[in-house]
């Protein structure tokens, strides 16, 4: 049992491993014990470690608005717009905000007034581009680069997945680009619908191709029927 105490002391940072312990850790039994204790402490840390508790969860403000493509839901943190969603029920949207962002959803027309106003103007054909702060802090750098490249495509135009891949310096990455665009947390505002397959065919769209076509028509872009 003394070996176990020594091993625990080492893992907890109470003591340095002695030579005797090092030798034991090099045996099958030692390796097995080390792995088992590491796993136990690792799981403990995974469950109780992060110091999030005791601090309030950050709020995420959300709202819904009727549009020509159905109800659109928006979510924004104090840092900026974090979600735009359609074809989703409000309870499911709220659950997603809570689980995926670890935030407390708060329905607030006031905190989402700016983006709601801009979306209304967009669907009324009175606005071609959005001017909002985005909170993309949870995304990977690659994902952000893809979205930023898509954000550069002006209304009324379309570009191919391959073109976006070239623009971010990954000419062979059009498949990864397509996947990243498919996980666009703020569609419409970042216009991933303006990225289409080669030859002007529509490609895919998480919200459904019908909506992709509607958005492009609204913007006056010419796309193939397919």
């Amino acid at each position: 049992m003394k070996k176990h105490d020594e091993l625990i002391a080492t893992l907890l940072g109470d003591a340095q491993a002695s030579q005797e312990l090092e030798r034991w850790l090099d045996t099958d039994e030692g390796r097995h014990e080390l792995a088992a204790y590491r796993q136990a402490l690792g799981e403990l840390t995974r469950l109780y470690g992060e110091d999030r508790i005791g601090r309030p969860r950050r709020p995420v403000y959300y709202c819904s608005l009727p549009t020509p493509i159905g109800r659109v839901l928006v979510g924004a943190t104090d840092a900026g717009l974090v979600r735009v969603s359609f074809r989703q029920s409000e309870p499911s949207f709220v659950a997603e905000l809570r689980e995926r962002l670890g935030a407390d959803p708060v329905r607030s027309a006031a905190k989402t007034a700016d983006i709601v106003r801009q979306l209304r103007a967009y669907f009324a054909g009175e606005r071609r581009a959005f001017d909002v702060r985005l909170d993309l802090s949870r995304l990977t750098p690659f994902h952000r680069r893809v979205l930023m490249a898509a954000a550069e495509v002006p209304a009324g135009q379309v570009v191919s997945y391959g073109e976006i891949a070239r623009r971010i310096g990954q000419p062979h990455g059009s498949r990864a680009v397509g996947q990243a665009l498919g996980r666009n947390p703020v569609p419409i505002v970042i216009p991933c619908h303006r990225v289409v397959a080669a030859g002007g065919r529509l490609g895919g769209y998480t919200g459904g191709l019908g909506i992709k076509r509607k958005l492009l028509r609204l913007e006056g872009a010419r796309v193939a029927a397919g």
Partner: peptide, 17 residues
């Protein structure tokens, strides 16, 4: 205090295994 901590780690490890 030390014995309590080490005992806890041992029990946890045993329970998970």
């Amino acid at each position: 205090a030390r014995a309590n901590v080490y005992q806890a780690v041992k029990r946890l490890r045993a329970a998970l295994e």
